[in-house]
Write a protein that binds this DNA or RNA. Structure first.
Length: 307
DNA sequence: CGGCTTTGACCTGCGC
DNA sequence: GCGCAGGTCAAAGCCG
């Protein structure tokens, strides 16, 4: 590690604070107010902590953020890039089913239903087309641009409608890598930053095998299926590498029964013992060696550095 | 001087 | 077709 890097690390290692409260941006609601900090136990400082996945995702799954259908908040419309519920159209149509009083009203209702189905189909097609390799999460941070270890070049900034905060557009500086990400602050809670990634890195993280702490953030993942989960983590630089999240999100969105934690069924989100030796741009590639240990038995373990 | 940010212009898609 | 909003381009300026 050269001096410059060392200095950067030192700077980043200091002043880590915890935030166990998170204001849910407009457009989301949380059915459960779990004490995340207590669940995760981010207490010990200057120690490498081990957290079992079930404990983390018990928390995750007890505090889902559910996009509110009535919301017009740009944040919610952005992060949810697929229908909130795969069967939402059928549900809504069935819920609006009325018992007709006569044939004329039956025809009217049928026409309305047909129109509604047509609209729903169009919406589905539109959203399907829009669904690229994209996901979003929100963090509670004072910093707009969260350093994830990759080098980004800002290529645009646009004012967001109904928001005093602009949206910033970044592109990966690596040649032939077309990954983009954008940042925008919640208009309701300026401390909340919505980060959207698009694409997959075609190269390893420039700064590898080093976990660098920056400030603690509260992070919420959006699974692309309308569901979301939030928890608090001391942010390790580079841990937000995107294939790592992408795997998790894919796993999550592929789960038919949303009540069953997908990560308890399969855990592509976390490094397996066999994958630890590889360098695929995943979490294990980003954390410093001592942080990565063999998962005990079948239990996947996540390591976080605490201040 | 190279790399980055800024910012106005331009392009594109969509709704009316 | 027009207006609007989101996204991107690219020239200019800044900075180390």
């Amino acid at each position: 590690m050269d001096k410059k890097e060392e200095q950067k690390t030192d700077n980043l290692m200091g002043n880590t604070t915890f935030s166990n409260q998170m204001n849910i941006p407009a457009g989301f609601s949380t059915p459960c107010e779990a004490d995340e900090k207590e669940d995760l136990g981010f207490i010990d400082m200057l120690n490498l902590q081990e957290y079992t996945i079930p404990s983390i995702f018990d928390c995750l799954l007890t505090t889902p953020l559910i996009p509110s259908p009535a919301s017009t908040n740009p944040v919610s419309s952005e992060v949810v890039n697929s229908p909130a519920t795969p069967n939402s159209s059928s549900i809504s149509s069935s819920s609006t089913e009325a018992v007709p009083n006569d044939n004329q009203s039956t025809e009217t209702v049928e026409k309305e239903e047909q129109n509604q189905e047509k609209i729903n189909k169009q919406l589905k097609t539109k959203k399907k087309n829009q669904r690229k390799d994209r996901f979003a999460f929100i963090t509670k941070s004072e910093v707009d641009h969260l350093d994830d270890g990759y080098k980004w070049r800002k290529y645009g900034q646009k004012p967001v409608k109904n928001s005093p905060f602009p949206r910033s557009y970044y592109r990966c500086t690596s040649k032939a890598c077309v990954v983009k990400k954008r940042f925008e602050r919640s208009s309701d809670d300026p401390s909340i930053v919505v980060t959207t990634y698009e694409g997959t890195h075609t190269h390893p993280c420039p700064i590898m095998h080093r976990g660098i702490l920056q400030e603690t953030t509260t992070t919420t993942f959006f699974d692309g299926g309308g569901g979301a989960s939030s928890f608090i983590i001391p942010r390790v630089l580079h841990y937000q590498q995107q294939p790592y999240f992408h795997n998790y999100l894919t796993s999550f969105s592929n789960t038919n029964n949303s009540s069953i934690p997908p990560l308890l069924q399969e855990t592509p989100f976390w490094p397996s013992a066999s994958s630890l030796a590889r360098d695929h741009g995943l979490l294990q590639d980003m954390l410093p060696f001592p942080m990565l240990k063999e998962p005990k038995e079948e239990q996947n373990i996540c390591y976080f550095l605490t201040d």
